[in-house]
Write a protein that binds this DNA or RNA. Structure first.
Lengths: 191, 191
DNA sequence: GTCTATACATGGATAGAC
DNA sequence: GTCTATCCATGTATAGAC
């Protein structure tokens, strides 16, 4: 009763992959079925409609979101640094679901996708703000993260470049901002 | 020979509007024709194919891009501040074309859309870097801009909130970052 | 649980009248 | 320059066999 979900998960993987690589429009039932290695009918047994597929992605990210937040919290680098670094897509299951959701949310046909994204961002904002203690800085961090996701989703080739020194530079600059805002008379909350 | 383009422009407006409000998928020839108040046949006289519509958006933004850069250059606030502020969609023709392009670029069917975006971002980066004199900070500014565009395109309702005090806060934080990076021993290049 | 076959609607694009 | 009519391909979804 626990392993039989593999076919279902495979379909969901295929759906996300197509949405992310070729856009929502390309993610037809046919294309997803082929990518998942099942027939259209087989796919529709697991997901009765297109919307069910979207709901599947939402369920996934809702589950994975907690783990991600936990990972940020427990990072020795601190929330901000690890948050920025993990905003460049590296193809983790969470990344794949998150980017798929941003695509699906754009159509407006799936209000739940949009709401889920908003909920996730609100959670991240609270987390970052708690560490930096400054709403404006927290907002900048969130925006940089959104920008990184947007860029690595739109220009997958550029994601490699951003993974290296350039990303370190961004993290460094954000660190400077946090310290500048903490003020000279206040010791850093880091560590 | 100069005003007869109004119908054409109207069709392009309609196309952008639907792409931005309801997603690329909703922007069918039928829907665009209805929105523009012409028949499908009439639309296809001006734009022989879907791709021609996309090319129309690209042509538009290529033309409008120069004006936008000029506006940033001549802003009394400086490039960075005005750039950040104008990254929240206010429904200008440039905004509409830009957001439409980001949507169209995601499908991968229109490589030109992606390349145009990359070209525009490169131009903006050069402009910002020239003012702040620091590649990492320039990159942060670009990412914040991308994040703002992404957010105001995805959550139009949130764009209002971001237009007010929150946006000022972000501009202020970025200003702090620029100053922090300029270093204590270096006078500000502003003005 | 997965397949084939099929119904039905919609999308892109052409032809040709006005 | 704009319209109607139409063709063909594709997309979503259902029915029912295996």
């Amino acid at each position: 009763m626990t392993q039989k979900t593999s076919a279902r998960e495979g379909v969901l993987d295929a759906f996300e992959r197509i949405v992310n690589d070729r856009g929502e429009r390309a993610a037809t039932l046919d294309a997803v079925a082929v990518e998942a290695g099942v027939s259209k009918g087989g796919l529709l047994y697991h997901f009765g409609s297109k919307k069910d597929l979207v709901d599947g992605v939402i369920d996934r990210i809702t589950a994975a979101g907690s783990d991600y937040v936990e990972l940020l919290r427990s990072s020795p680098e601190g929330v901000v640094g690890s948050f920025i670094r993990t905003s460049v897509t590296t193809g983790t299951p969470f990344d794949n679901s998150y980017i798929a959701l941003t695509r699906l949310a754009q159509s407006g046909i799936y209000p739940d996708a949009r709401e889920t994204l908003a909920r996730i961002e609100a959670e991240w904002f609270a987390l970052v703000e708690a560490e930096v203690g400054d709403a404006a800085v927290a907002r900048v961090v969130l925006l940089v993260s959104d920008g990184l996701y947007y860029n690595s989703a739109l220009f997958p080739s550029a994601a490699d470049a951003a993974t290296g020194a350039a990303l370190d530079d961004v993290v460094g600059a954000i660190g400077d901002l946090v310290r500048a805002r903490s003020g000279p008379g206040r010791s850093t909350p880091v560590d």
